[in-house]
Design a protein around this nucleic acid. Structure first.
Length: 151
DNA sequence: GCCAACGTTGGC
DNA sequence: GCCAACGTTGGC
């Protein structure tokens, strides 16, 4: 069992969007970074815990708890020429990009990025490091438990 | 809108 | 395999 932080732009999929979807679940499409893809492919298991993070928005921060509900499988958007995530080098025979499914566990209060920065217990989190851009990052179990205790 | 950081691309 | 150019991310 591992712990993850996954960034989503709320203008694309917010925590409330997730809550409104069938099964309160979504395919985590659009990951086009190999390191993030490899986390999904090689490490994510069903029931891994996810911190659902809102990025590129007015109030960046942790917005809820989720879980991995399906193992990695090919991301359909890579095959769709009309999709912004279309990848001409991907084929059904040799897909490049994968996604897991993520299911809502519970919406929480928003823990703003600013607050996350204030806790010495969380100072090593990947999202706080200079220049971090990865949209999927592993979270230490102690960090996860600490965050839970503050939500 | 700015800009630092960093990943990817492609010519050599 | 190097590396400059370019594109993207994401907080501010």
């Amino acid at each position: 069992m591992r712990y993850w932080l996954m960034k989503s732009e709320p203008s694309d999929v917010s925590i409330d969007d997730l809550a409104s979807f069938p099964n309160q679940s979504v395919a985590w499409y659009g990951i086009r970074n190999y390191q993030a893809r490899n986390f999904m492919r090689d490490q994510m298991q069903v029931d891994d815990a996810v911190l659902f993070y809102h990025s590129s928005c007015d109030q960046p921060g942790i917005a809820g708890l989720a879980r991995v509900s399906r193992l990695a499988y090919p991301d359909e958007t890579q095959f769709d020429t009309s999709n912004k995530y279309f990848d001409p080098k991907a084929t059904h025979e040799t897909p490049r990009w994968l996604n897991v499914d993520v299911q809502l566990v519970k919406k929480t209060r928003l823990m703003p990025l600013k607050e996350i920065r204030e806790y010495p217990e969380l100072e090593h989190m990947r999202i706080l490091q200079r220049g971090n851009r990865l949209s999927i990052t592993p979270v230490d179990p102690r960090e996860y438990e600490f965050i839970l205790s503050k939500l």
